[in-house]
Amino acid sequence: MRIAALVAAALLGALAAPALAQRAPDPVPIEEWPLEKISAMGQAIYRQDVAAWVATDAVMALWASTPPPADMAGWIVVDEGEAQRVRFVRQHGGTLKSAFDVVVRDGRAGPVEVVSDGTLSAEEKAGFLARQTAISNIGHLRCSQNLNTVVLDDPDSDGWLVWLLTSTTDANIVPMGGHYRFRISADGSTVLRRDMLSNSCLNMPRRQSDDQGRPVALAVSQIVSQGPVETHVFLSLQNRMPIYVIAGEGRIFEVNGPEITKVEQ
Rank of each mutant, 00 (worst) to 15 (best):
residue 33 W to G: 00
residue 35 L to K: 10
residue 37 K to V: 01
residue 38 I to D: 01
residue 43 Q to V: 15
residue 43 Q to L: 12
residue 43 Q to G: 05
residue 44 A to D: 04
residue 45 I to E: 10
residue 45 I to T: 12
residue 47 R to K: 14
residue 49 D to M: 10
residue 53 W to L: 07
residue 58 A to P: 00
residue 59 V to K: 12
residue 59 V to T: 07
residue 60 M to S: 06
residue 62 L to W: 00
residue 63 W to Q: 07
residue 63 W to N: 09
residue 64 A to M: 09
residue 65 S to T: 14
residue 68 P to L: 10
residue 69 P to E: 06
residue 71 D to F: 00
residue 74 G to K: 05
residue 78 V to F: 03
residue 80 E to T: 08
residue 82 E to K: 10
residue 87 R to N: 04
residue 90 R to E: 03
residue 91 Q to Y: 05
residue 91 Q to L: 14
residue 93 G to V: 01
residue 94 G to Q: 07
residue 98 S to I: 09
residue 98 S to G: 14
residue 99 A to Y: 00
residue 102 V to H: 11
residue 104 V to W: 04
residue 107 G to S: 04
residue 109 A to D: 00
residue 109 A to C: 01
residue 111 P to Q: 13
residue 112 V to K: 11
residue 112 V to P: 01
residue 113 E to A: 14
residue 116 S to D: 10
residue 120 L to A: 06
residue 122 A to V: 03
residue 122 A to Y: 06
residue 128 F to M: 08
residue 129 L to S: 12
residue 130 A to F: 01
residue 130 A to N: 12
residue 134 A to S: 14
residue 136 S to W: 02
residue 139 G to I: 02
residue 142 R to N: 11
residue 147 L to Y: 01
residue 148 N to I: 00
residue 149 T to V: 13
residue 151 V to Y: 03
residue 152 L to A: 06
residue 153 D to P: 14
